[in-house]
C-alpha cells in the first residue's frame, strides 16, 4: 500500500498526514484524528451522518478521498465548539427537542450551519432542502426545522 503526504487545514489548524491516498476523509477524521463526532451511517453519501464542511460547504466525508484534501479547509463539529453561530444552533436544537438518539445530529448541525453561513434568512423550504441529505429516523425533522428557523430569527434580530 502506498502512502502520500497530504497537507490541509483541519478545524483551523494546518495538519500534515501520511496516509493511503484513497483513504476516506471520514476514516481520517475518526481514526487518525480521533474526531468521532463525524459518524458513518451508509458509506455511499446517502445519509448525511458524515457531513463535514469542505471550504465552508457541506459535503459527505465518506465520499472524499485523502488525495483530494490537499490545500483544503475541513471543519468538523469539534471545530466549531466556540463558534457563536454553531452554539446558537446547538442551544436551539436542544430547546426545540431536535435531538433524540443524536446520531444524525452533528451532520445535521453542519448542514444547518453551512446554510446559515450562505444565507442568514433562509425560507422554510430552503431549510428543508439544506437538510434533505441528512436522514433522521427519530424526530420526523419537525423540531429540527423549527430549531434552524429559530436560529435564523435570533441571528437576524439586531438586539441579539
Amino acid at each position: 500500500m502506498k502512502f502520500s503526504t497530504i497537507k490541509f487545514e483541519l478545524n483551523g489548524k494546518p495538519v500534515e498526514i501520511e496516509v493511503p491516498p484513497a483513504m476516506r476523509l471520514l476514516d481520517i477524521l475518526r481514526e487518525t484524528f480521533k474526531l468521532t463526532g463525524t459518524k458513518e451511517g451508509c458509506g455511499i453519501g446517502e445519509c448525511g451522518a458524515c457531513t463535514v464542511l469542505l471550504n465552508g460547504q457541506a459535503v459527505a466525508s465518506c465520499l472524499l478521498l485523502a488525495g483530494q484534501l490537499e490545500g483544503t479547509k475541513i471543519t468538523t463539529i469539534e471545530g466549531l465548539v466556540h463558534d457563536e453561530r454553531m452554539n446558537l444552533l446547538q442551544r436551539n436544537f436542544l430547546e426545540c427537542g431536535a435531538v433524540q438518539c443524536g446520531f444524525c445530529t452533528p451532520g445535521m448541525l453542519l448542514s444547518a450551519y453551512a446554510l446559515l453561513q450562505k444565507d442568514a434568512r433562509p425560507t422554510t423550504d430552503d431549510i428543508k432542502n439544506a437538510i434533505a441529505g441528512n436522514l433522521c429516523r427519530c424526530t420526523g425533522y419537525k423540531q429540527i426545522i423549527q430549531a434552524i428557523q429559530k436560529s435564523t430569527e435570533s441571528l437576524s434580530d439586531p438586539d441579539q
Partner: peptide, 21 residues
C-alpha cells in the same frame, strides 16, 4: 413541562460516545 434533554449537550457537540467511538 418543556424540559431539555439531560444528555443533549454531548450529542450536539459530537462528544457523545456511540459504540464505534
Amino acid at each position: 413541562k418543556h424540559i431539555i434533554r439531560e444528555d443533549g449537550w454531548e450529542k450536539v457537540t459530537g462528544q457523545a460516545k456511540y459504540g464505534d467511538d
